[in-house]
């Protein structure tokens, strides 16, 4: 079973990777955005966003979605940071997972953008990735992890 970091701890994961070819994905199988859009009963289904798939279509259904995975095929493509933050700003409270080829040094940014689960492509690096969650203990901006910008907290 694949392992990942969730809420600071390393755990095993039950979700299966999406299969774009499948007509009837299993209930524990992540859906591509296209599959998710076509499904009538979306309740309880996890969905994976790719770069270029902004979360707008999910926003009306957030309370019924347990998991949104944002895939990072290339770590230099930072669109997923906006997707994460947008989902949290619209009230998404389920698991928000970064998956793929992001790098350890992006962990703080991902956490700050609202991601609470991290599944890097190289599973052997999980401990090091988890350690980088704490690279910074203070920051200037308001973000999902800290609703108030520093200027509202300074004094």
């Amino acid at each position: 079973m694949p392992r990942l970091i969730k809420d600071g701890a390393i755990i095993e994961d039950n979700w299966l990777e999406p299969d774009a070819e499948s007509n009837a994905p299993a209930s524990t199988q992540l859906l591509t955005l296209e599959q998710w859009l076509q499904l009538r009963d979306k309740s309880g289904r996890g969905v994976q966003l790719e770069p270029g798939e902004a979360p707008a279509p999910l926003l009306d259904h957030l309370q019924h979605i347990p998991l949104v995975v944002v895939n990072f095929p290339l770590f230099m493509d930072g669109r997923g940071f906006s997707y994460g933050r947008e989902l949290r700003e619209h009230g998404f409270r389920g698991e928000l997972r970064a998956a793929g080829h992001f790098i350890r040094d992006q962990m703080t940014y991902l956490r700050r953008c609202g991601f609470n689960a991290f599944q890097p492509a190289d599973e052997s690096q999980l401990e090091a990735f988890a350690a980088s969650l704490n690279d910074f203990s203070e920051s200037y901006q308001a973000a999902p992890d800290q609703p108030l910008p520093l200027f509202r907290r300074r004094h």
Partner: peptide, 16 residues
């Protein structure tokens, strides 16, 4: 200076 602080290590905009 306000922009400097806001833009410094901005989590969403480090990989534009």
């Amino acid at each position: 200076e306000i922009i400097r602080q806001w833009s410094t290590l901005h989590p969403e905009f480090a990989f534009l």
